[in-house]
Design a protein around this nucleic acid. Sequence first.
DNA 1: AAGCTCCAGCTATAGTATAACGTATCATTT
DNA 2: AAATGATACGTTATACTATAGCTGGAGCTT
Lengths: 162, 162
Amino acid sequence: MDGSVYSAEIEQQLAAAARICDRRDTRLTSLRRQVLALVLDTERPATAYDLLDRLRAHHKGAAPPTIYRALDFLLEQGLIHKVERLSAYIGCVQHGHGHDRAAQGDAVHHAAQFLICRQCGTVLELEDGEIGSAIGDAARRVGFRPLASTIEIEGLCSRCAA
Amino acid sequence: MDGSVYSAEIEQQLAAAARICDRRDTRLTSLRRQVLALVLDTERPATAYDLLDRLRAHHKGAAPPTIYRALDFLLEQGLIHKVERLSAYIGCVQHGHGHDRAAQGDAVHHAAQFLICRQCGTVLELEDGEIGSAIGDAARRVGFRPLASTIEIEGLCSRCAA
DNA sequence: AAGCTCCAGCTATAGTATAACGTATCATTT
DNA sequence: AAATGATACGTTATACTATAGCTGGAGCTT
């Protein structure tokens, strides 16, 4: 199936993802697992076509739909995030509370925030509850029911601000 | 120069924009003014190519760079917002406190939030201070200096939730 | 086995955005 | 007013991002 072996950390994340999908009765196929591994195996967010190029090394004949379909699945499962400002994809940090809320569209609890440095391009993921609940409150106040959220802050990271 | 006439409300917004640019010594040229008018003259966020089509009606020979350069200027000046999830542009709601902070990259005070309805596609703009300051706090905690932010919440508007 | 559903291969095309270079316009200085 | 420099715009081409639509195949249910 999928002969590749990744670092211990990634293997662990892949195993966790497999358990999550198993519990949900969704299918982390070989292809999806490979794409997830590629997303995890990078510091910075990767674009779909970056991933496609890398996928092609081990998966001859992959085309744009190949990668986009896999990404769509992984997004739905809350295993990865899309950074809209970069049109790029990044692994979801693993937290103790699990990812099961994501599939239920729990925007408040699964809301991630990204800090994007203009200078060096690094992306830091936060998961700040204050922000999440402030958004939830504001939305509720106007009768809006949040399902998913994008919070991205562009600026200068501590290193580059100096 | 620019013979078109818009509704009283839009004319007022255009005049306000002109004053802002004047104060800042930036140039709201005829073309930029026209594009701003097109963005303002629509309920929903418009894509760049929508705007381009409409611009062409009065501005023969307009090409993609024509519209993108104007949009870049208007974004810099804080006169419009980009809704990343829709790759679309929308006018900035006018508030009493003015827009001068935008040019200084004051992400906290100029941070807008968009509520995007999955069902009917309408976009509601909020400007909730709680969210802004929660973001500012969280960023500061990790030594990050925010310059611009994107906050977009997808879900169901009050009408469609029923 | 027939029928169903989901997954993936594959080709084509739609939609979004920028590079690069030349010309014009405007403000300032001389 | 002419020279200079900076900014804006015209124009062509191209890069980058994403989806439509159809086909076959794998696995499950009846």
